[in-house]
Design a protein around this nucleic acid. Structure first.
Length: 120
RNA sequence: UUAGUAAAUCGCCUUAUCGCUUUAAAUUUAGUUUAAAGAGGAAAGUCCGGACACCAUAGUGUAAUCAUAGUGGUUAACAGCCAUCCACCGAAAGGUGAGGAAAAGUGCAACAGAAAGUAUGUACAGGUCAUGCUGUAGUGAAACCAGGUAAACUCUAUGAGGUGCAAUACCAUGUAUACUAACGUUUGAGCGUACACGCGCGAUUGUUAGAGGGUAGGUAGCUAAAGCGUGUUGGUAACAGCAAGCUCAGAUAAAUGAUAAGGGCUCUUUGUUAAGAGUACAAAAUCCGGCUUAUAGAUUUGCUUAACUA
RNA sequence: GCUGAAGUGGUGGAAUUGGUAGACACGUUGGACUUAAAAUCCAAUGUCCAUUAGGACGUACGGGUUCAAGUCCCGUCUUCAGUA
């Protein structure tokens, strides 16, 4: 399969995000944290780096791009196990700007943790 | 040569693989393929000036408030820019300057000092018929000078209606023209977007405030313009005119990326070709013209000659 | 994105019209009282140098105006608030 991450896979609805943070559950693999919730619309994924941790816009965008890229390359871990009816939000918690290798390994860990925690 | 100084430019590159956004075309159906394009000199701060939109219909006088401040020019406009005078800094090139008015009026000046703006005390010296008439001493930032202070009020000249694309228009979904309080319907609540008066507008679902219910998706606005570089003419210059050419981001939990390899550039070690490290500041959010602030490093040009060498 | 407001010892919070910066309260430290503690009372408490007298620097940071700036003006930084 192709490793894509386009508009339709992105979590955008403000309403859905509010619900996610209100009712969702979470897993974490420092410095990443994932909030998840079941839905009916297929896999929707968002990515976030807080303004509190990264004051400059350049750094925030940089971190979000790395997270997005890491998710894109590892999303088969979810799809192969038929985890496809979920809303996910991946947060970056640390204040350090990471390199790609770190984000990549942590993302793998995070997604396998999520896989174990889910019922199927 | 070094140093200084002014101005301008660049601010990593190439290839491969995997991705993202927009537009166009094809195919077919909402996916795929192909092609093209896809961050900056400051995109930043939001400090000025506009365009544009709305604010009874956006009209409008006075006063107030705010801004600007040598002179002339430039511009759509400006607190910008250019030229120039003056003052200060510098050896020079050059830099800096909220640089109008104190002889319209009001205020202010701690401590010190006899006295701080209605002046004139003491000591000494000089002078006179005589007298603070003249000088010096002492205090202070300032001691009589049409003194200082206008980044104190003020006056003069000029300019400014307010709010900002989360403006605004339309489509879709949904709800509560309900409830409470105050005021009001031509004898005028309130509005004209800080405030006051005048003129004006103003209620079939009135106005303001409170507490509360619902939506928070999409489309337009939105990127071809005070546009860009080139040549040429006028002008000391900022800038303006003309000519032919070019089309150059448009996202919205927000695209412009990731990995690998190679090459530049700088520094360090080594000691003459290797190794290691580094490669700034910073991410469009309606759009333009400026200003301010941040910025590893590299390049070019003009000017100055104090110092060093010949 | 757009639009406002604020910044003073360890903390809250004063300082009139520019004229001795830190009033007042809390906290902290030391002492008194007590067998011990609390409460109460007394004293000290910005930093540095001298450790007697005193001097220098201090109102987020950097400049300017002024004889003199927490206060007036300009720039920067940080924090907070409003707005579909």
């Amino acid at each position: 399969m192709r490793l894509t991450f386009n508009k339709h896979e992105k979590l955008k609805s403000q309403k859905a995000i509010e619900q996610l943070f209100a009712e969702g559950q979470s897993v974490s693999a420092y410095p990443l944290r994932l909030v998840y919730k079941k839905n009916e619309h297929g896999l929707k994924v968002g990515v976030s780096a807080s303004k509190r941790n990264f004051k400059k816009a350049v750094d925030r965008i940089r971190v979000k791009r790395l997270l997005r890229e890491a998710y894109r390359l590892n999303k088969s871990m979810l799809i192969d196990h038929k985890i496809d009816n979920y809303t996910l939000m991946i947060l970056y918690i640390s204040k350090e700007i990471p390199d790609f290798k770190l984000v990549d390994t942590k993302m793998k860990k995070l997604l396998s943790k999520l896989k174990d925690q889910l019922p199927n």
